[in-house]
Design a protein around this nucleic acid. Structure first.
Lengths: 233, 233
DNA sequence: CTATAATCAATTGTTGACAATTGACCTATT
DNA sequence: AATAGGTCAATTGTCAACAATTGATTATAG
């Protein structure tokens, strides 16, 4: 009596399946920023009609993973430090709101779920498996936002997460040392569980501001290194 | 040499035009929440094919103005106090970020534009024309967010504004007295113009929190009045 | 040789026909 | 009379053909 929801209407639709398939490839890094997407080619590969692909590409455009130049082309969205900056600043305020609401409204069941998500992150960090860590990290944030019960926030956040994953791969943003990672998340988790809304909001914000700082610092470093060596065109 | 931009590629596309037309009707109040949207009917009225309408409805869905039940129907999104609550809480953090960035980055030209937008609001308030006031109000907020230069934020905010307009009509949220309206906006404008980022962010937040409070208060009042008179089914 | 205009292939935009799904209505059976 | 099941019309989902647009290429005139 668990779930036979995998047949749920939404995911039976071909355009959703096509969008899922293409999204996976973009977020994986299989399709790099700027990569051109040909409707005909995708239609052939996924064995659906061009109209269905078109529908999928429109959805991915609304998710910020694909760009369209009307009458001309579809491309995978660009990746750059500026794009990443936009994502992290947005993420900061969205997760700030999510954490605040979560702290205010968490039920006992919610708290248990959050503790579990945190335990997963700790386990992943101890295992040292980088991909597992990233997954657990995102999942913890997703859990916090999910507890808020704010439908629009949850939806926006999910889109944002996908974009962050995409940018991360291509900007090459490194992960911090595991110790700080764990302690940051523990603090956030504790604030939510203990119902300290103001602190939860602030921690969620700060967590993302810190990422922005690191991002800008690294980009600055690279830039100065580049101007030192390379000659401008 | 001003602009012959009305021919710009994007707006020539039939699906965009269709989306614009339908959006206008939803935001106007011509199409109430829950109103069913028949692809065939819309196609006939707008004199385009069903595929084009489909594309337009998908876009409006991503804007939060339309809901889809797969294989079954399209409807205008529901309106309720809860939906409005979601919109205002989101708006609070988005405009908070927008105001902060605007205060940090505003150029002299930006400041002039913002002053102009504020003057427009004052003029509208003095004229007493309610629709003009609402327009000028939204436009002021749009200007602040626009100055931030944050592409994703600007886009999200624009979508949000449309949803707020739609909910406002059907929830019947009243506008405050003009004096407070003007003074609130003057304070925000001044904070941005003077480069006081922290204050700008706080004012933008507070402005929306206040709306939420009023919203919940009115809804509570109505609810208790209803339970006092009507008998539950 | 350069600049301008015409041509063309590649790609996206739009359409109408056909398929699949749903919910309401009708019928038959207990 | 109530209910289970079948039928059908209405509606959405998918497709493949056709139209429009674009950018590159080629031809042409100066």
């Amino acid at each position: 009596m668990v779930a036979l929801e995998s047949l749920k209407t939404q995911d039976r639709l071909l355009d959703r399946q096509a969008a899922n398939s293409i999204r996976r490839q973009i977020v994986n890094g299989s399709m790099p920023p700027g990569h051109r997407l040909l409707e005909t080619e995708l239609a052939r590969d996924l064995e659906v009609s061009r109209g269905t692909i078109r529908s999928a590409l429109m959805q991915l455009t609304s998710e910020g993973l694909v760009c369209q130049v009307a009458f001309t082309k579809w491309e995978v969205a660009p990746a750059s430090v500026h794009e990443a900056w936009e994502l992290y600043t947005l993420r900061g305020v969205l997760e700030g709101l999510g954490a605040r609401l979560a702290a205010e409204r968490a039920t006992p069941a919610d708290r248990t779920q959050l503790e579990k998500a945190f335990a997963q992150l700790e386990k992943a960090a101890n295992s040292g498996n980088r991909e597992a860590i990233v997954d657990a990290d995102f999942n913890l944030h997703r859990t916090v936002v999910g507890i808020s019960g704010h439908k629009r926030l949850i939806q926006q956040h999910e889109k944002l997460i996908q974009q962050v994953r995409f940018q991360m791969i291509h900007i090459g943003l490194t992960t911090r040392d595991y110790h700080h990672l764990i302690e940051d998340h523990r603090a956030l988790k504790d604030a939510v569980v203990s119902g300290n809304a103001a602190r939860a909001a602030e921690l969620a914000q700060t967590h993302n501001s810190a990422e922005v700082e690191r991002l800008l610092a690294e980009s600055e470093k690279e830039k100065s290194a580049a101007t030192g060596r390379d000659s401008p065109d």
